[in-house]
């Protein structure tokens, strides 16, 4: 059974300055199976973050359905957790305090259980020894680990990741990708992962969804055949490069079509 069902979802933004509507995404239909890792790639402004925010319940949507385990999404819920592009940690809380935060807000776990889970997920993301540090005292990569631990600790059915490694330097990013796969194998979550990096998507996901430029539609879906666990060397495998190349060509076509025809399209806010 599908964990996450996105059916024919459309979202338009109202452009105040020009008094007209701009479509962010249109007729998006996508199903994600239980325990599956799906990545969405697309040119910037294709509405992929909009789609993630809709699934997270942070943005209202007018058309279509988003369902988790058959239940319609009407707002944020304990069945989902978001890993944000910016770590969004409470700067006045220690690492421990931040990892607990999601669980505290949900109120689903009793206190001793929260303690246990906090410790467990801090260990899972490899931050033991930094429990009492403040976010300003640790690196960007470590902050994103806290961001991930906070989301995982709240025990969501679906993990939503919004370009979580985009702000990291190239080396840290590679390392974090491998770490994420390791953690994902332990945590066994359904993941929807947004990125603009094609090789990140191919490396991480079971399926890669390519979105077209505005209005964002699903252009193609690629099954990624590589067995797990995947080593970072996979990225230099000719088969890997071939898939990456095909996706890249698709996106390139898209970007060119924007430059050629859609140049008058203004950028949608927050898309």
């Amino acid at each position: 059974m599908n964990k996450l069902d996105i059916q024919n979802v459309s979202k338009r933004y109202w452009l105040e300055r020009e008094s007209r509507e701009v479509p962010a995404c249109e007729g998006v239909t996508l199903s994600v199976a239980d325990g599956e890792f799906v990545a969405i790639v697309g040119p910037s402004g294709c509405g992929k973050t909009t789609l993630l925010n809709i699934v997270a319940g942070l943005l209202p949507y007018e058309e279509g359905h988003v369902r988790i385990d058959g239940e319609r999404v009407e707002g944020p819920g304990v069945d989902r957790a978001v890993v944000f592009q910016h770590a969004s940690l409470l700067p006045w809380r220690t690492i421990t305090g931040n990892v607990r935060y999601g669980m505290e807000l949900h109120g689903r776990f009793a206190k001793p259980e929260i303690e246990r889970r906090t410790e467990r997920f801090i260990r899972m993301v490899g931050l033991q020894g930094f429990e009492r540090a403040y976010p300003s005292e640790i690196s960007g990569g470590m902050q994103q680990r806290v961001n991930l631990a906070r989301a995982l600790a709240s025990d969501p059915k679906v993990l939503l990741m919004d370009e979580p490694f985009a702000a990291l330097d190239a080396q840290t990013r590679e390392f974090m990708q491998a770490e994420l796969l390791k953690i994902w194998r332990q945590a066994r979550k359904t993941v929807l992962f947004i990125t603009h990096q094609i090789n990140e998507a191919v490396y991480l996901a079971d399926r890669v969804v390519v979105m077209s430029s505005r209005p964002g539609r699903i252009k193609d879906v690629f099954d990624i055949p590589f067995a797990r666990p995947r080593a970072l060397e996979l990225k230099r495998d000719p088969r890997f490069l071939a898939i990456e190349d095909r996706i890249w060509k698709l996106i390139e076509e898209e970007s060119e079509s924007i430059l050629a025809g859609g140049a008058s399209e203004p950028a949608a806010p927050g898309a």
Binding site: A56, L58, P76, G77, F84, L90, W92, Y101, L105, H106
Partner: peptide, 28 residues
């Protein structure tokens, strides 16, 4: 910080929770 509000909302924070865990400590 809007990012903090968004994170709190994503974890289903109530208005009261947003107030006590984000707004108040942030303004100390």
């Amino acid at each position: 910080d809007d990012d903090l509000l968004k994170a709190a909302r994503s974890f289903c924070a109530s208005h009261m929770q947003i107030f006590t865990t984000v707004a108040l400590p942030g303004s100390v």
